[in-house]
Design a binder for these strands. Structure first.
Lengths: 253, 253
DNA sequence: CGTTTGGTTGATGTATGTCAATATTAGTGG
DNA sequence: CCACTAATATTGACATACATCAACCAAACG
């Protein structure tokens, strides 16, 4: 997951620096792996943000809960992702990082990482790359949430996850099925939808033979059609397969 | 705009490095200011992303247009903001940066900035800070678009702009009125709403004596009530005034 | 095995979108 | 400075995607 494919689709001249940075950062992490159960909180709101993390195994997400109970998953982290790099710059956040599945993480003291960032431009490059990568995904989220329809957003999510898992080296290039350790409620919190509506869209997906999501497993039955549906929200960068077809097809009539 | 207040609310120990970084970056920019008229495109989709920019005067925004015409403003840039820092890492984007008002920008060749980033950790810090700052704002957008109601989103926007202008040194700390050089359509593209609905919410704001937005001028009549309305989407970091009241009040009944 | 958690479905409500017409303002060329 | 035009704002009538409420089911789980 530290190999080139993870850094794909960015300025190729950065590859060596990114690889060196990854390598160097690896040595900074605390020995011990922290093991977390699904639902555990990794970084709290109240506490000072003193560590950065790397996800070794499993899924995690940055979640904000509004005072009246509404909740939004802002970002999902997959294996290989560095997260809370921001702790080098900001002490407190209005949101929480939570384990979506059982997972393993390693952590670095923010000050240690910061020293390395200052003294070694490879480390700085690797860290900044991660933030920029997140930002790119956030751009896509904003567009999806702001202008996408429910089915488009969910279709785009299924494709995004697949693409990222492939690039993280967790999934085979050709795989059309993968584990997505989230409930429909969490999917709703990510896509800005109610649980009920997520359920209905998924039913439609099932009926149309697009995707089946059942028991945490995604099975993409009609890749092309899924891509066509997600098309407006489609970010080529996010995908591993550029075999991409034009034309439209909405799920609800 | 390069002073401490612009870098406020982050790790205070970074302040010296940030200031030095700002200073050093300033020397890298091309002599000539580019002057742009409202609506002009600063960075295209098709072209290679070879420069980073700093906004000296005016407003700009990152805009994505979907193949079927839907359009979303992803980020708004205000004076002092560095933008397209990503050009150091990514060559192409699916979106465009466009001048929202007449504005003046300076530019640096991406390679020049990148060399400085590698050789001087202050520059790296300043660049990464900017990206992280953007990311923080994107988190707020995602929450707002995913879970906020139309009136809450617009209220939060009016407050966000005010806070940022104050920190950018463009606006007085106490000011309750400012120029917002966007049409209602653009506000809709930013808040994920139709023009018509933006108009209706603004009418309600006017009726309730909350805010008046007319002829590109925002006049905040009832600051406290506006804050109360935006409360759920409220990011303390974004605000200059922490005199913040709890309790709710929706605009539509 | 009861209890919890997550999923499924129907009935109904509502926030917001779409369409269409008109008013207003700003911009432009003569 | 005026007349014309295009852009923006405003409003009403109507449509709809999605939320909410409520019930029930199925699987997981201690």
């Amino acid at each position: 997951m530290a190999d080139s494919s993870a850094f794909a689709l960015h300025r190729p001249e950065l590859l060596p620096a990114l690889r060196r940075g990854e390598e160097k950062i690896s040595r900074l992490f605390d020995r011990r792996l922290r093991r977390l159960a699904a639902g555990d909180t990794i970084v709290r709101e109240e506490e000072n943000h003193d560590y950065a993390y790397r996800l070794k195994r499993g899924w995690a997400g940055r979640v904000r809960t509004l005072p009246d109970g509404r909740s939004q998953i802002i970002l999902v982290f997959l294996p290989g992702d560095l997260f809370a790099v921001k702790s080098m710059f900001v002490t407190r956040h209005p949101d929480v990082v939570r384990a979506l599945s059982d997972c393993e993480i390693e952590q670095v003291d923010q000050r240690v990482l910061r020293d390395a960032f200052e003294q070694d431009s490879d480390v700085a490059t690797r860290c900044t790359w991660q933030v920029i990568e997140e930002e790119r995904r956030l751009h896509n989220s904003v567009v999806g949430l702001g202008r996408g329809a429910a089915d488009e957003r969910l279709a785009a999510l299924f494709l995004e996850f697949r693409g990222r898992l492939v690039r993280a080296g967790v999934l085979d290039e050709k795989a059309l099925s993968y584990e997505l350790p989230m409930t429909q409620e969490q999917l709703g919190d990510l896509a800005g939808l109610s649980t009920v509506h997520v359920n209905r869209v998924l039913r439609a997906f099932r009926g149309n033979g697009l995707v089946v999501f059942r028991g945490r497993t995604v099975i993409i039955n009609d890749f092309e059609a899924l891509v066509r549906l997600a098309y407006p929200l489609f970010d080529t960068f996010e995908q591993s397969q550029p075999e991409f077809v034009a034309g439209h097809a909405r799920v609800f009539s």
